[in-house]
């Protein structure tokens, strides 16, 4: 375990070196969050009865999403790993006395944590200063705070496990870039990045909420503002656990299969 932790640490240290990128990221997040809220405000003012969330819950959703972008997005991936796979250098990684799946998943966690660490606080502080209902407010009850924390960790792990599936699929697909970008665009829609899932039309919404993509950011961000609470929250968290287990299992099996094929082919 120690070796994976130090891998995570190394990636974390390397990650926080990009302070200019972080600064730019923070600015982008302010602007993006502001824009989202401006857009939804227009619709909110247009027709409050058809608005499927509280405006405050939506603002919380948007600001948390911006601040913790690096934790929950499927598209935070490392090019090094893709290059390693396409150029056949995976063989070198196999020479090490480590489990490849663990190695990559901890790397990815390190990268994501470093980015989130630099960005979340400045985003949250400024968002908290905005007037209600457009800023970031504390969760309504200590209970929802605790549930949010649990759900956020699970959401983070879900996102990491999903990015592992993307890495592993590289072994099986051709023209990786195109396919990957296509899938990620779909994931953005299904995970609640394009518009929060409550805004989807009824019927579609219920299905989307069951998919693994909703387990990444949808669950924690909505639990925070109390949009999902009580038994529904418990259900969402259980679903997160289920998808996490399923994706890790799938990722491990697919990786083992891909690697055995490589070993047979001799690289």
């Amino acid at each position: 375990m120690q070796k994976y932790i130090s891998l995570l640490r190394m990636k974390f240290i390397a990650g926080i070196q990009y302070r200019a990128a972080a600064f730019a990221g923070i600015l982008t997040q302010y602007a993006w969050g502001g824009m989202e809220i401006l857009i939804y405000r227009c619709f909110y003012l247009e027709n409050q009865t058809d608005f499927p969330m509280q405006m405050q819950a939506l603002s919380n959703y948007v600001w948390l999403q911006q601040g913790l972008l690096a934790l929950f997005m499927a598209w935070i991936l490392e090019n090094d790993i893709f290059e390693m796979i396409t150029h056949g250098n995976v063989a070198y990684e196999l020479c090490r006395p480590c489990d490849l799946y663990n190695m990559w998943i901890f790397r990815n966690m390190g990268v994501r944590l470093s980015r989130a660490a630099l960005r979340c606080l400045p985003v949250f502080v400024v968002a908290a200063l905005l007037p209600a209902p457009y800023g970031l407010k504390l969760p309504p009850t200590p209970g929802s705070a605790g549930l949010f924390l649990l759900s956020a960790i699970l959401g983070f792990l879900n996102a990491v496990a999903f990015s592992m599936l993307i890495y592993v699929s590289t072994f099986y697909t051709f023209s990786i870039q195109g396919t990957r970008a296509f899938c990620l665009a779909v994931v953005d829609l299904l995970s609640g990045k394009v518009i929060p899932i409550p805004f989807l039309p009824d019927g579609i919404r219920q299905i989307v909420e069951l998919l693994p993509f909703a387990s990444m950011q949808n669950a924690p961000l909505r639990i925070y503002g109390g949009d999902i609470a009580g038994p529904q929250a418990a259900q969402a968290i259980l679903l997160q656990c289920f998808w996490l287990a399923a994706m890790i299992l799938a990722g491990r099996i697919l990786l083992r299969k891909a690697l055995s094929r490589i070993v047979v082919q001799g690289g």
Partner: peptide, 15 residues
Amino acid sequence: SFFLTMAAQVMTTIT
């Protein structure tokens, strides 16, 4: 890869 990239591009704006 050209057509796949194009499809991916369109997908982002379709969403």
